[in-house]
Design a protein around this nucleic acid. Structure first.
Lengths: 98, 98
DNA sequence: AGCATGTACTTTGTATAACAAAGTACTCTT
DNA sequence: AAGAGTACTTTGTTATACAAAGTACATGCT
């Protein structure tokens, strides 16, 4: 059995990854939406998204709607794979005992 | 949905809890067995067991076999409940998306 | 008796992490 | 010009995880 993915395992990041994974394919989630869904502060959310981006697990897209800045994130293919592998790891662990 | 149990969530402690939860009822796991199963150092294992014990999630029993010291641990009722609740939390999160 | 071995810690030091709170930059609205 | 909104960045504190070394006590060996 493979080990845990410590980047994804952290609870706030696991919730971020789960939220992104549950999106209909091709959809993006806004920074602010994610932040309010998960009850994080601006700084906290920015730090966790930075960690996921640095790992290549999420893609961050910035644009403007009118003149409003908008930041949206999505899982990369690598990120989705990593998430799926970690979920398998957890399922095996939690059902098999270890 | 309830939040994560941060004491149990940490990856080494989650593995400890899963190992203890998978034991046949009434059985105990030895410190050294757990340590080698999970690939932890003495100090690391002692610290995590201490955290779980402080939370009331595990019971630590010390005795001697002949004159050999033996430390064995088991989940308390509270610990088993907490583990089960955290597993439910994870399953909901990982399947429901959140 | 003296010494290495084994078990289970405890202590120490370090690196990393998480977080809140405050500050920054830019924009739009009024 | 003043305030609000978005998305950060910075700062500072507190907590965490970990390895490595040290401690305590008992056994086995010679």
């Amino acid at each position: 059995m493979e080990g845990p993915d410590e980047i994804i395992h952290q609870s706030m990041r696991l919730r971020i990854a789960a939220s992104l994974n549950a999106l209909p394919s091709g959809e993006l989630l806004e920074f602010g939406k994610l932040k309010s869904m998960l009850g994080a502060t601006d700084g906290n959310m920015a730090t966790h998204l930075g960690a996921l981006e640095k790992a290549g697990y999420i893609a961050v897209e910035k644009d403007f709607v009118g003149k409003k800045p908008r930041t949206r994130v999505s899982l990369t293919r690598v990120g989705r794979k990593a998430f799926e592998r970690h979920v398998s790891y957890l399922k095996d662990l939690l059902e098999g005992g270890q």
